[in-house]
Nucleic acid binder design. Structure first.
Length: 478
RNA sequence: GCCCUCAUCGUCUAGCGGCUAGGACAGUAGAUUCUCAUUCUAUAAACCGGGGUUCGAUUCCCCGUGAGGGCACCA
């Protein structure tokens, strides 16, 4: 088929322009983040532009709060956009605006007039329909339980960068403006992508079936369609159920991970591996973002859907947490405790706080564990884990060991871990026992648990007075 | 019902005609550090089924089956 139009607005531009076009009608979820990420990666990989467009035509479901969440989530994950609304919600940048569909009504009118003028659109039942080209016939539709008008036409051929060649029949007129005067998704999507000079449309596979409509619209406007790349969907993990992941699923929201103090770079790394990998014998999974940008390309994207695995995300998060520089860890920990009920107490003494956080850093698997992991450092009202107690008290003669230890603590040198360790070892040697015979019960008495930093560090940081008080209290109660 | 896409360990995946089918998470068993976590070692675990093509198919083709998506005056 020969196209009439010669003025292809971006034909001469070789620059890649991709967009992420969310609608602010709900929480920002993993699937959206991954779609945004693949677009962002492609833009950064090719040196192109990443454009943020807000599809806020659904006035009933839109909210400023959700709009804000889009900006915040993208920024938090480190996906900066070259064009679109500013992150603070004030103004926008780029030459192809406005970037919010709610402000583009006149553009849609203009493009509608073009279709009307060319005879490719008509009014029926108060709505405006896009006219397909070809011979018409009536047929009964089982699904919709009614007679519908079909059009004989060659199928649309989509040359997808990820799927290959996909053929699909598009054989019905469809609504482009509702009877309430608002344009529908397919129409605004295509018009925006034309006017924003989008070169590659990278989106979820759920849009693959819509693409034939979009191609016909491009043709209707006399514009060569951009390159399409339909990425696999993220499905629910087996515990979540069946089907594609939606914002209602537990563990599906970016906000949830943010509130749990996951590290954004870990989330981005995990997401990048859902449907993509460096390939060709490259087994690496933990990849710096710069490395991913360097390696990412569309043909390497998988074609099959992937199930979300929260455990693997948590593992990735731990890897990033472990190698976080001390100052960044402390900053994160500070931010975390500012939101906790115990925050004021915990943050009261900077040096003490710092010391404990650095003890906890190599031991925890996620920042969210920080509060319970360090609770006994900040309060004398810590809980004694009943199960641990049962286990510890069942072995050997823990009460005797504790009494022996309590007797020598007042004379101990608490200045360093080494001096504490030496003193306990000396006691053990005198009694012909091991360090472990004192360690377990001392830990239980002083922290109420069996998990934590070395007992020597705990003693030193808590200080002699508190250690003695705790040991005596435990002895009295046990 | 019609249309589209996909198919390797439980999960994410490598593989692009010839491999002992590799890695990671989760699992199991050990080792190590005073506990815990980390770490390390070992172990178990997969080519959906049936036809072709080929000297040879996990790999290419077809048919099933299964999984997912789309069929709106939602986006």
């Amino acid at each position: 088929m020969v196209q009439l139009i010669s003025s292809l607005p971006y034909k001469s531009m070789s620059q890649v322009r991709v967009r992420f076009a969310p609608s602010p009608t709900g929480f920002f979820h993993i699937g959206s983040a991954r779609t945004a990420l693949f677009n962002w990666l492609y833009a950064r990989h090719t040196g192109g532009k990443f454009i943020l467009r807000i599809e806020d035509t659904d006035q009933a479901r839109n909210s400023e709060e959700f709009l804000r969440l889009i900006y915040d989530s993208l920024s938090w994950l480190g996906m900066d956009w070259d064009e679109g609304p500013n992150a603070d919600g004030v103004g926008e940048r780029g030459d192809c605006g406005p970037y919010r569909q709610s402000q583009r009504a006149d553009i849609y009118q203009q493009y509608l007039q073009q279709l009307l003028g060319a005879g490719r659109a008509y009014e029926k039942d108060g709505a405006i329909w896009f006219r397909m080209l070809g011979e018409r016939y009536q047929v009964y539709d089982d699904h919709r339980k009614k007679e519908v008008e079909k059009v004989k036409a060659a199928p649309v051929l989509i040359d997808d960068r990820i799927r290959g060649k996909v053929e699909r029949a598009e054989d019905e007129d469809f609504v482009i403006f509702r009877s309430d005067g608002n344009p529908v998704f397919h129409f605004v999507n295509v018009v925006d992508d034309i006017t924003m000079k989008i070169s590659h449309i990278i989106r979820g596979e759920d849009h693959l079936s819509n693409t034939s409509k979009h191609v016909r619209l491009y043709e209707g406007f006399g514009v060569t369609p951009p390159v399409f790349a339909h990425i696999p969907l993220i499905l629910k993990s087996p515990e979540m159920g069946q089907g594609k992941m939606s914002k209602r699923d537990k563990g599906a929201l970016i906000e949830e991970y943010r509130q749990r103090y996951f590290l954004p770079e870990a989330i981005v790394n995990y997401l990048s591996l859902l449907g993509w990998n460096p390939g060709a014998g490259d087994d690496r999974e933990k990849l710096a973002i710069a490395e991913i940008v360097k390696l990412f390309d569309l043909p390497a994207v998988n074609q099959s859907n992937a199930k979300f695995d929260g455990k693997k995300l948590a593992h990735m998060n731990m890897l990033y947490l472990l190698e976080l520089p001390a100052d960044r860890f402390l900053a994160q920990a500070r931010e975390y405790f500012q939101k906790q009920a115990t925050g004021a107490t915990v943050l009261a003494n900077e040096a003490y706080f710092r010391e404990i956080m650095l003890l906890a850093h190599p031991k925890i698997k996620g920042l969210e564990e920080l509060s319970t992991y360090t609770a006994y450092f900040f309060s004398e009202e810590f809980l004694i884990d009943a199960k641990v107690k049962e286990k510890v008290m069942a072995k050997g003669a823990p009460k005797t060991r504790l009494a022996e230890l309590t007797a020598v603590v007042p004379a101990m040198d608490f200045s360093t871990d080494a001096t504490v360790e030496e003193a306990i070892k000396q006691l053990a040697t005198e009694k012909a026992l091991g360090f472990g015979d004192y360690q377990a019960v001392a830990r239980l008495a002083v922290t109420g648990t069996n998990a934590g930093p070395s007992i020597t560090s705990i003693f030193r940081v808590l200080g002699k007075e508190r250690v003695i008080a705790r040991l005596q209290r435990f002895l009295a109660e046990a």
